[in-house]
Computed example of a mutant assay.
Amino acid sequence: EWSGTHKITSKREWPDWRPPAQMIKREAAKGRYLPTYLAGGAENPLGARALYLGTTEYRIHGTNQPWTIGGAVSSGCIRMRNEDVVDLYERVNVGTTVEVI
């Protein structure tokens, strides 16, 4: 978990995913092996859109597993249903301030 204020520095449709090394290691310890890279698309856990926060690895993004929303299953990103993140993506601009509390 984290908190703070950042600006949206970029936005991507159907973003690629490169899981952080710490996530790869954590999941491998559970017997789940993640790829080092996954192209954007329906099988990608980042979903339909991503809004990148500052210079961090964190982002607001969709998910291909909406039943996991509300659970601590990521490395700190904010997950939304794809239809909701698409709506947000259209409403906010790069430079918008995001406060996570």
Rank of each mutant, 00 (worst) to 15 (best):
R26Q: 11
I69M: 07
T5F: 06
E83P: 08
A39F: 04
T9P: 06
Y37R: 15
L34P: 06
T97P: 00
I78W: 14
A42E: 15
N93C: 02
A21H: 02
T96E: 09
L38F: 05
Q22K: 00
R32Q: 04
N93R: 06
H61G: 01
M23F: 00
L34I: 08
E90S: 13
P20A: 02
G40P: 02
S3F: 12
G62D: 02
I8T: 04
E99Y: 15
S10A: 13
A42T: 13
N82S: 08
P20G: 03
Q22S: 07
E90R: 13
I24N: 00
G54R: 05
I24H: 01
V100I: 15
L46Y: 05
V94C: 01
I60C: 01
P35T: 12
V98H: 09
R81S: 10
V73I: 14
R81H: 15
T5Q: 13
G41L: 02
P15S: 03
A28Y: 00
W17T: 04
R91P: 03
A29P: 02
E1I: 07
P15C: 03
A42Q: 14
E1R: 07
G4W: 09
E83N: 14
E99C: 13
A21D: 11
D87H: 14
G71H: 15
G40T: 06
V100T: 12
Y33Q: 08
P35C: 11
D87E: 15
V98F: 08
P15M: 03
G62T: 02
A72Y: 12
L46P: 05
W17N: 03
E1L: 09
G70D: 12
T97Q: 04
G54Q: 07
P35Q: 13
W2G: 04
I60T: 02
K30E: 03
I8D: 03
A28T: 00
A39V: 11
R59D: 01
V98Y: 10
G70Q: 10
T56W: 02
L53H: 12
T36W: 14
L46K: 07
A28S: 08
S10G: 05
L88E: 12
L53K: 11
E1M: 13
E43Y: 06
P20W: 04
D84S: 14
S3R: 11
S10H: 07
Q22W: 00
V92H: 09
C77N: 13
I8S: 06
P35E: 14
P45C: 04
M80R: 10
A72M: 10
T9G: 08
S75K: 04
P19H: 04
Y52T: 04
R91A: 12
A39Q: 08
L88T: 09
M80I: 11
P20E: 03
K7H: 03
P19Q: 05
T36D: 15
V85T: 12
N64S: 07
G47W: 02
W14S: 06
R81N: 14
H61E: 04
G54N: 07
